[in-house]
């Protein structure tokens, strides 16, 4: 976002053919990074896109979802519909459900997951589900590359730890956190094209006798940065899934700090995400019940 220069030359727009070119462009000076454009253009509020622009949407290598021995990698140019179409473990089902709730088909066809996390809106649709899978981000610059947990990458409302000369090249999901089934619920004030009032993502693995052996729950749009509910997770782990919903109480959400805004008052957000968590647990119980 920095370094918007009043410029009139085509040279200020770079369509990077590959990652090296992108990194070199960033090294030469701050750029606005353009991928799907679904946050960049609306942020202009009808004004033209000026200044140095680095377009990474043409880098074929970045439009890939790949796996290695220990993790899945979602490239920086991968959009929401790519995710919906990809063959991924069931733990990604929450992320896929979130993908279907992003804006509209038109938006899903352009908007990238990496753009979603870099834009760092408190209501970013992708973040809760990624947090339930302990996702990390891979950053690269001419100075080298680094990986950091998503939970620490986003530091606040529209704030991240990305340095000006860096770009996020991929989201990494460790295979240690892809066991079980993913779930997602988004509360919005209308059916399509809606920014979340609140969101809940959950990843759940059940052991013998349908006890919860692994659980991760994250809430979005109820704090500056989407948050894992570690206390609740610990409280539920090892418990039978059947009664889990009844074990959820308001105190488990004390770490959230929702705001009053045009979409809803804070009190409703708290109330509704608590109810949503219960419902996801009930839904999980019913799904797993049906499997048997």
């Amino acid at each position: 976002m920095q370094g918007v220069l009043a410029a009139d030359h085509h040279d200020d727009y770079v369509r990077a053919p590959d990652l090296d070119a992108a990194i070199a462009t960033l090294a030469a000076g701050p750029c606005r990074i353009l991928a799907g454009g679904t946050d960049v253009f609306p942020s202009l509020q009808d004004r033209p896109l000026v200044g140095r622009v680095l377009d990474i949407s043409g880098i074929a290598d970045l439009r890939q979802i790949t796996q290695s021995d220990d993790h899945w990698s979602i490239g920086a140019a991968v959009n929401w519909r790519d995710v919906i179409r990809a063959a991924l473990p069931a733990s990604f089902d929450g992320l896929k459900a979130a993908a279907r709730e992003v804006g509209s088909w038109q938006i899903q066809n352009r908007a990238t997951l990496v753009g979603n996390i870099c834009n760092a809106s408190p209501a970013a649709d992708g973040v809760p589900a990624l947090l339930t899978m302990d996702a990390a981000v891979q950053l690269q610059s001419c100075r080298g590359s680094r990986v950091m947990p998503l939970a620490s990458f986003i530091t606040g409302n529209r704030k991240t730890k990305r340095a000006e000369d860096e770009m996020v090249t991929a989201i990494l999901v460790p295979k240690t956190a892809t066991a079980g089934q993913g779930y997602f619920y988004k509360l919005g004030a209308r059916r399509y094209l809606v920014i979340s009032i609140g969101m809940v993502a959950m990843r759940l693995l059940c052991g013998k006798q349908r006890t919860i052996s692994e659980i991760a729950i994250a809430v979005g749009a109820c704090s500056e940065v989407a948050t894992r509910l570690h206390d609740l997770e610990q409280h539920l782990c090892g418990q039978p899934l059947a009664g889990a919903a009844d074990m959820v109480s308001a105190s488990h959400f004390a770490g959230l700090s929702p705001i009053d805004d045009v979409r809803a008052p804070a009190s409703y957000r708290m109330d509704a995400v608590e109810e949503s968590v219960r419902r996801l647990l009930v839904q999980a119980g019913s799904d797993i019940g049906h499997e048997k």
Binding site: Y13, R15, L34, G36, G37, T38, F41, P42, L49, V53, D55, S57, G58, R81, W105, Q106, I107, N109, R110
Partner: peptide
């Protein structure tokens, strides 16, 4: 339709459709 997928053309830069 951009490469046969629906998109909002107000959110796509000309350079991106090369």
């Amino acid at each position: 339709l951009l490469d046969d997928e629906p998109v909002c053309s107000c959110l796509v830069a000309l350079g991106q459709i090369d």
